[in-house]
Design a protein around this nucleic acid. Structure first.
Lengths: 340, 340
DNA sequence: GGGGGAGCGACAAAAAACGTCGCATCGCGA
DNA sequence: TCGCGATGCGACGTTTTTTGTCGCTCCCCC
């Protein structure tokens, strides 16, 4: 029966993209491992005939020749991506562009190009070419620009986290001045906080995890030494909860707010919590009271404060005092006249 | 030469995923269109032998049998996704989960599962299985929950936008009460604003574009009538800029802020604009002044206000007055004592 | 009831794919 | 510098698969 197709399909999947490569003997090995009986000669022939059809390249600089897909090889996906999925991918990408450094999205280019092609064809069928004019993502976060990374850094760091290997990095420390230091670090995890991406790692012989902003890593290189977790293991959630990223986990509190009608409407659409309740305070429907059980986090506080006078915090008392104090400081800062 | 592989590969790509289907004669047609000379018999044979290897199904309920991939057919991508890309996809998805309704991401499940598989294998090689514990995305936007959508609505609406066909929708209008109305609408564009997704469309015979929140569309059905743009065309950016989503485009202003050191540090990492400058105001480095050319938007205002007393707006004067006014209202609301 | 399209079994010719062998080449270590 | 082993590759005859064609049957729809 048709060994042919199965073998070539598997073979194509085993070939990596360009910086990496695999030799014919290697590929032969992997094929037999996966239960395909063949000869190395056949594999060689397969590679040759495949390279006539697809963007495969052979690196002949060193003797066991290495095969790989070209960097710009278009994505060939089975089953092919459908227009709806392509659209979803695009929306996700549009959104991620505000969050991830450009280098991080670099790897997704073939996927996005594929999505683009599919969308264009769809639109073409209907006689239009105005696709990109039909979707927008409006960000809700701070209007900041993601910092640029040294091109290779993201890749290398990703590699280190994925393969659990140590990294040698040059790090421009947070303290002022352009002082850079070199460390050998044990990568533990990746954390993305709105525009900035962080690597969590232990540094050199020390055992306490730290976070390094990726854009402050000027150079990174993979070491051979395998990365080790600190004794007792590493719990990323606990690390974040203890406040490492200004995102300390708050206690659960019963939030009580007084809202104007516009804000009440928005919150009825996208609630703060599953148990949220909204009740009008008067007949005209201009004021509402909201109850909800939420986590008290810094993010919540920013958000409430940002809404300004559209929202008044009634409870918990600690949050109310907190915000009132902030307002007092603000009032002094802006020399607002007395509230009588 | 090897027509074989080329033909079967193309054939597989032409087969759609399950709700859709294509018959052997259709597929034969499309193959010849793309320059592959063959007979319909061969296509039939190909389909049969392929279905032994892959999750293809044949719908035999009506006579020109329809072929499709099963809904859960795993993604077979060439070149295969590499661990770094898989990781990036996961990060994007983690982020999108806070923004898109669950139904929207539904289509990406095969992609995410594929990414998951690749990651697990990678981690396996190194003897670990703790992959999901190594990445987190910390949101910066409001801590709201995306509203739930009627399952089919997102798909149908997407379809309408993509193929430019009218939709018949039941819409629960924004005004209070559970009144729903039915309209025939001409879909124009999709807009995503943090937790809520919108469809921009003209309604019935009217010519002015409106936005409909997707979660308030209770039911949607594709109509045969092709969708039409309003006379004079439709410009999504202009529509947004005119304030349709509380995101009116602001004028460019030269922003001047006084910041505490923590905020200054964050802004030095992720600047507000390309031309941003930051200068310390004293020797201890506790106060900084920032200049940047930015768009004056509501989003900027929320964000500045949310930062509280860590930021003082010095210019433009209009923004300063705006914020000072807001603070005065807040001070009255919270009965903050006089600022002297 | 009949016409046409679709699905499918069979067959023989044609075209590959395959394993094997042998030789040339290259890299590495002695 | 020499030699060994691994790798790449051309050639060849056999084997297997593929492919076009024909014809029969079934089913739907007119």
């Amino acid at each position: 029966m048709s060994e042919y197709l199965q073998r070539r399909l598997l073979l194509m999947r085993l070939i990596p993209r360009q910086p990496r490569k695999k030799s014919a003997p290697e590929l032969y090995e992997e094929l037999t491992e996966r239960g395909i009986e063949t000869t190395q000669r056949t594999v060689e022939r397969d590679l040759e005939s495949l390279s006539a059809l697809m963007p495969l390249v052979r690196d002949e600089r060193s003797r066991p020749y290495g095969w790989s897909w070209t960097t710009d090889a278009p994505l060939l996906d089975l089953p092919a991506i459908d227009p709806e999925t392509a659209l979803t991918l695009r929306v996700m990408d549009a959104h991620a562009s505000a969050l991830l450094p450009p280098n991080a999205r670099h790897r997704l280019i073939p996927y996005m190009e594929r999505a683009e092609t599919v969308l264009e064809q769809t639109v073409d069928n209907v006689g239009l070419r105005t696709w990109p004019d039909r979707v927008r993502v409006l960000g809700g976060g701070p209007p900041l620009q993601p910092p640029a990374l040294t091109p290779e850094v993201f890749e290398t760091v990703q590699h280190g986290v994925l393969e659990r290997r140590c990294l040698d990095v040059h790090y421009r420390s947070r303290s002022r001045g352009a002082v850079t230091k070199s460390y050998r670090i044990h990568p533990l995890a990746l954390v993305f906080r709105e525009p900035v991406s962080y690597l969590v790692a232990t540094i050199g012989p020390y055992r306490d995890p730290r976070h390094l902003a990726l854009h402050r890593i000027l150079h990174a290189e993979l070491a051979d030494e395998p990365a080790e977790d600190p004794e007792g293991g590493f719990d990323l959630d606990a690390f974040i909860a203890q406040g490492a990223f200004d995102y300390p986990e708050g206690d659960e509190v019963t939030l009580q707010l007084r809202l104007d009608d516009g804000t009440a409407f928005h919150l009825s659409e996208a609630p703060l919590a599953g148990d949220q309740s909204l009740t009008p305070l008067d007949d005209e429907g201009c004021l509402y009271e909201l109850h909800a059980t939420v986590q008290y986090t810094a993010r919540l506080r920013w958000w409430l404060l940002g809404l300004g006078s559209a929202v008044q915090v009634l409870a918990p008392e600690s949050l109310r005092r907190d915000i009132a104090g902030e307002i007092q400081r603000l009032a002094e800062l802006y020399e607002v006249p007395s509230s009588g």
